[in-house]
């Protein structure tokens, strides 16, 4: 049996298995730490920084930082909430995100986090980048307007599907999601049944002809705002022992 270590998040004492990430340990105890680039089952990379916490005062990404005995983790502080809000706002202005008619609306993690953080409009100017739509594949559409460069598709395709369909090219503001072919998604070996097709947290990779099938009010985050499943489902092991 693995070693159990004890530490605190926002002053609450948490028990976790040594080697667990802070994000996973918190989640097991019913504490939701927001994240975009990480998905359960994928190797974490700490890319988006939405899960940033302070560990003994130093910023760290909760999805990659392992727990250690006695560490003091700050998660739900005004400073960290503000940082996370700003990251999400920057993601909104960096792409072309039109929630009002996006078919991912209601099932989109970026939108759901914006709602969770109370973002009504980003404070930064929109960049309105020119991005391409690749609709060449008969069953899957790649809309780069909505890509937040989280890399979930890349890791899922490589690690779970064993295909490496997706990857990134260029740097900085010019960084673009590319496909493993000369130009088009249709020329890759991406298949409708690949897990990578379902890996996108936003509306960049979508199955064709499935849009708007779920009525408003019954979509994923209509029924359960992001994070609440973690917060209500899990048993807490905190002082007092009462579920949150």
């Amino acid at each position: 049996m693995s070693e159990i270590v004890t530490f605190t998040i926002d002053g609450r004492r948490i028990s976790a298995e040594a080697g667990q990430t802070i994000l996973a340990a918190a989640q097991a105890c019913g504490i939701y730490i927001p994240r975009l680039c990480h998905k359960d089952g994928l190797t974490p990379v700490g890319g988006c920084r939405v899960c940033t916490v302070r560990v003994n005062g130093r910023p760290a990404s909760a999805c990659t930082q392992p727990v250690a005995a006695g560490i003091v983790v700050d998660n739900d502080t005004e400073e960290l909430r503000s940082w996370r809000r700003q990251i999400v706002e920057m993601l909104f202005v960096e792409g072309n995100h039109f929630c009002m008619f996006c078919e991912k609306s209601g099932n989109c993690e970026l939108q759901a986090l914006a709602y969770r953080f109370g973002i009504t409009a980003p404070r930064y100017p929109y960049l309105w980048p020119k991005r391409d739509v690749d609709a060449s594949h008969p069953d899957i559409i790649l809309d780069r307007n909505r890509c937040i460069m989280c890399g979930r598709c890349e890791r899922t395709s490589r690690d779970l599907d064993g295909k490496s369909v997706f990857g990134f090219v260029e740097r900085g503001i010019h960084k673009t999601l590319a496909v493993n072919a000369d130009a088009r998604l249709a020329d890759t070996d991406l298949d409708l049944t690949d897990q990578a097709v379902n890996a996108c947290p936003v509306g960049a990779i979508l199955k064709k002809r499935t849009a708007y099938r779920t009525p408003v009010g019954q979509r994923q985050f209509d029924r359960e705002p992001i994070g609440t499943s973690v917060e209500t489902r899990a048993k807490l092991t905190i002082d007092g022992g009462e579920p949150r």
């Binding site: 009002m100 008619f101 078919e103 739509v133 609709a135 559409i141 064709k208 849009a211 708007y212």
Partner: peptide, 14 residues
């Protein structure tokens, strides 16, 4: 133009 056809009923109503 250049948007998928299934978006039309939701996009154009805007």
């Amino acid at each position: 133009q250049g948007r998928p056809y299934w978006e039309m009923p939701v996009a154009v109503q805007r």
